[in-house]
Simulated scan of single mutants.
Amino acid sequence: MMLKATRFQDLAPLRRSLAEAAAREALRQQQRAEAVRRALEEQNLFEKTVGPVTPLRSPTTRRWQPSEPPAPEPLQFLLDEQSVLREAMSDEFDVSTLLDVDDQLSFRRPGIGLDVTRKLRGGHWSIQRQLDLHGLRSDEAREALGQFIRLSHRTGIRCVRVVHGKGLGSPGRTPVLKGKVHSWLVQKKEVLAFVQARPAEGGAGALLVLLQPGKRRV
């Protein structure tokens, strides 16, 4: 008898486990039934609110077309342009034979008459933009100048001022950047001519630059 009692006691946990599993399954069934009931109620409510729906008759079928994806940013193009700027404006370019050294240093591209530099000195063209290269390293100044000239030309600017400084803060008080700016400007095809600025506009520390006529772009 003790053996049978022991076996019945061993079955008690199993019975409890089965009862709990059955209760959980009954609860899940009840929850599913409740969810179906709510969905039917919401559907009936929508139909009662909107009323009967009749599809529109159209001779053509219109399908939704996804909008075109945004154009990719021309990162490689910008990198190529920067590379071209560095290559097109060499520090090794000898500009000395191309400059007019009179009472004030100046440059005019072949085919440009002396009257152009004379008008440029006299303020015939108003200064529309200015670039100040103070405090920039040589490579930074070269890139900044190249971009400035290119963008000014693209937007229809004719006359700009480039401030390179007089070199008073350079070692030996030698204007290193000044000579490089002359060389870089001569290598830019957008530049027609440049002259040393008048005293009120920067004197020996700045240049007035005349650019090729260009179509104004927004």
Rank of each mutant, 00 (worst) to 15 (best):
D100G: 15
Q9R: 08
I157H: 05
A39Q: 06
P199G: 05
E47T: 09
Q130A: 12
F8A: 10
E190L: 11
P66A: 15
R57F: 11
V84W: 10
K189A: 05
P74T: 04
W125F: 06
A200T: 13
F93W: 11
G122L: 14
D91E: 15
P199L: 06
P66C: 12
R38P: 01
A5Y: 13
P70M: 11
Q196C: 11
S83C: 11
G146Q: 03
I112T: 06
E201P: 02
L99G: 07
Q82W: 11
L45N: 13
R57S: 14
R216M: 05
Q187L: 06
R121Y: 09
K188S: 09
M1N: 13
V191Y: 01
L177C: 13
L211A: 04
V101N: 11
K166F: 04
K119R: 13
T117Q: 07
V218K: 14
D91P: 11
E81S: 03
L185N: 03
D103E: 08
A22D: 12
K188E: 12
Q31Y: 00
G203S: 02
L75D: 06
D102A: 14
F148H: 03
L27Y: 05
R32I: 00
R32H: 05
Q187T: 03
G165K: 01
N44D: 08
T54V: 13
E68S: 13
